[in-house]
Design a protein around this nucleic acid. Structure first.
Lengths: 230, 230
DNA sequence: CTCGGAAATATTGTATACAAAAGTGCACAT
DNA sequence: ATGTGCACTTTTGTATACAATATTTCCGAG
């Protein structure tokens, strides 16, 4: 299911001029690939990212690979120690307790910002939540959950806020992929989304904010329970 | 007043092994240097960052320079367009309207998190605010303002939150350096800090949060007025 | 004189080279 | 047998090389 990372290169190592393409953003492709592996769990916390091995495997040089890893470091997915290179960031209950409340507050802010426009997206929210309720796989559920929240905050014009939320959501996805592979909690989340929608419909933003916060904090508690069980 | 960027190299280009030092973090030094130039206004919005010119001027190769610039891009100080390189990010009232409310919310969250511990730092807040009141230069005022807010949120153990706030504060500093070089607004800010302290002393966190938000939104309004005047 | 376009130049994105530090394993002493 | 030091290998951090694209220059047509 990986994007393949194809690169049209048939020439020998010292003669890469046969290759064209690479629209000048290999580093972005690499970041996406590595991020995917981390979120999907192929790369686990603590794994060492050997530059030579990875650059060979991905058929690129170390330069854009390092740039991609530095990007991921800034996003919190990877650590780098001097002269020791990059390591996949460890998962921890502490990080969970930091991240969930943070994204909750940021989404609440986005909702507050865009309160007047929210009626526009209520139909979308209803539709996505219905699909969410019908999701049969954990992966699709996570996708629709993300889509629902993205729709909720999509009216906010604050670019910084949007970028932060996007990154935090990926951080969360990493945990949920690992610990929430069952679908038992979907129904609860669907109900919570329903609550939020109900509040929005009657224009009660404060209640919607409370319900949104509850949605995140409840998910956090469920996740922490699962993590504690291991 | 620049950190000098000294690098002990006297050898010819192809024989740099004469140099020692560089504890394996030239890229971090470069980021700090560039960030300083951007915040201080030496590099203005829209300025093109020519890699060859800069690497020559800073006596480093393009590799760590690019890594530093990519870091700054992630922090929002620099833009990069494909095949067109890096450019210093433009200042705008729109960005101000995005950034100030964001940092306000995040600091409010930090205060809420650490409410029980806040009594510990009240004496520090009082002392720093007194020094702030006596500040005679805009630079020192900004420094003490930052220190005051750092102290206020320093009890929050949320590392992600702290990192976000730190970055946003630098973003703000860039605007304040350019538009608030007078000291007329210090007295007002001192008074607002005093309000916050008063609320904290009587344990009224909600009021403290409101006052904190007001402190930021008021500063934002003042800044927007100045920007509008140009 | 201005506009358009091709050659010349400059700049970026990626690949490779090189030096220093970190990691590994083996020999040897105890 | 075990611990320790030292040579060898690996890996990182930085420098440089190279190819492709973008920018500039300069010349001729209108």
């Amino acid at each position: 299911m990986k994007p393949a990372i194809t690169q049209p290169r048939s020439a020998k190592p010292p003669a890469p001029r046969g290759g064209r393409a690479t629209h000048g953003r290999i580093r972005e492709r690499l970041r996406a690939e590595l991020l995917d592996r981390i979120v999907k769990g192929d790369l686990k916390g603590g794994d060492k990212l050997n530059e030579l091995r990875l650059s060979g495997e991905l058929k690129v040089s170390r330069t854009p690979l390092r740039e991609a890893m530095l990007h991921l470091e800034r996003e919190g997915f990877v650590r780098s120690d001097v002269r020791r290179g990059f390591t996949v960031g460890e998962l921890s209950t502490r990080d969970v307790r930091e991240t969930y409340p943070l994204i909750a507050q940021l989404e609440m802010m986005a909702v507050r910002n865009s309160a007047p426009m929210l009626s526009l997206v209520i139909p979308d929210l209803v539709r996505i939540n219905a699909a969410f309720a019908r999701a049969r796989t954990a992966q699709r559920a996570r996708h629709l959950d993300t889509l629902w929240h993205d729709t909720l905050i999509g009216q906010s014009k604050n670019a910084r806020l949007a970028a932060m939320v996007a990154t935090l959501r990926l951080a969360i996805e990493r945990y949920e992929h690992l610990y929430m592979s069952d679908t038992t909690l979907i129904a609860l989340s669907v109900a919570q989304h329903g609550d939020i929608i109900k509040c929005l419909k009657r224009g009660d933003i404060d209640a919607a904010l409370k319900a949104l916060e509850h949605n995140y904090l409840f998910s956090m508690q469920a996740l922490l329970r699962k993590m504690g069980e291991e």
